[in-house]
């Protein structure tokens, strides 16, 4: 139970930081000035606020945002502001200053997990060899590949020599073509999956088949050639565009709204350790 309480506490604190970083303004609201930049020097910025000129000394904790006609204001170094810019300038609330360090911390944690991944692989493959499971010799090859990959990895960035050759052979002449081969399998998988999906077994399947037929023909010249004599709204390219950008977009946006709200709910459950089942079998 202590371990779970610790996990819950760390989760809450980490979540709280990200939550506050998002909702707390980056500058102290009551000390932030918003106006037009009149002059910028290495030591101070002069802003025109409500017709009055206000001088702000450039200190290490000073943050500046340049306003843009559209979109969120862009964070810039105070000295990067230009005369005539609309800007918000104020002392930092410090939360945003740590975001890079906190993100780096998680990247380091993630990197440590690669070791666990390797341990998992070693456990599985050494077990295969020990118990002489079917195709155990493939597991021997795994250890050879790991050793070879590690040595070849040392050749990354090397200009010449056998290490560079080894790196090229393993990563460029073996791994890359193999990945492309696997990727190309997708074409065949798509064909078989489409065949199954397009067998008209129900009303929904028929609708899907008809829509796919229109969209596919609408994307190629023969679609226009077949229907060019019809009124424009009955021409295949027009119908295909309508399906793609009107009907499909409406459905996709509906899904998106649901997912976004769902993501907030899942986030809240994890943040407050209310999630049950897999993570916390009972209430803390």
């Amino acid at each position: 139970m202590t371990k779970r309480r610790l996990i819950a506490l760390v989760t809450f604190l980490a979540g709280l930081y990200y939550f506050l970083e998002f909702v707390v303004p980056p500058t102290v609201p009551w000390r932030t000035l918003r106006g037009e930049v009149v002059s910028v020097s290495p030591t101070a910025i002069v802003l025109r606020v409500d017709g009055q000129e206000r001088q702000i000394a450039i200190e290490p904790n000073l943050i500046a945002y340049r306003e843009r006609p559209t979109g969120a204001p862009e964070r810039v170094e105070p000295a990067q502001l230009r005369v005539g810019d609309r800007a918000q300038v104020g002392p930092s609330t410090y939360l945003s200053d740590w975001i890079t360090s906190v993100n780096n911390f998680f990247i380091v944690l993630g990197a440590m997990a690669w070791g666990m991944g390797l341990i998992s692989l070693v456990m599985v493959h050494s077990g295969n060899i020990r118990r002489r499971r079917p195709e155990w010799y493939g597991s021997v090859l795994f250890f050879v590949a790991v050793a070879g990959g590690m040595v070849a990895g040392l050749g990354y960035g090397v200009e010449s020599g056998w290490l560079k050759e080894a790196n090229d052979v393993v990563f460029n002449y073996l791994l890359r073509p193999m990945s492309s081969t696997v990727f190309s399998l997708l074409a065949f998988h798509m064909a078989t999956a489409s065949y199954r999906a397009f067998r008209v077994r129900s009303g929904e399947a028929a609708l899907m088949m008809a829509s796919a037929f229109i969209v596919m023909l609408g994307q190629i010249p023969i679609g226009l050639w077949l229907t060019h004599g019809l009124p424009s709204f009955l021409q295949l390219p027009v119908m295909a565009q309508w399906i793609l950008y009107i009907a499909n977009s409406a459905a996709v946006r509906g899904m998106w709204f649901g997912m976004m709200v769902g993501a907030i709910a899942v986030g809240l459950r994890f943040w407050l350790s209310l999630e049950r089942g897999a993570f916390f079998d009972r209430e803390l």
Binding site: F257, M259, G262, R269, L274, E275, R276, G277, E283
Partner: peptide
């Protein structure tokens, strides 16, 4: 599909608290 995935653990565990969060999610929608 989509948000049903997020609702999955609540749906499967049938935990009243988790189900409560699903209802809250629907009000938000």
């Amino acid at each position: 599909i989509g948000e049903e995935l997020y609702a999955a653990s609540a749906y499967l565990t049938r935990d009243p608290i988790m189900l409560g969060s699903l209802v809250g999610q629907d009000y938000s929608k």
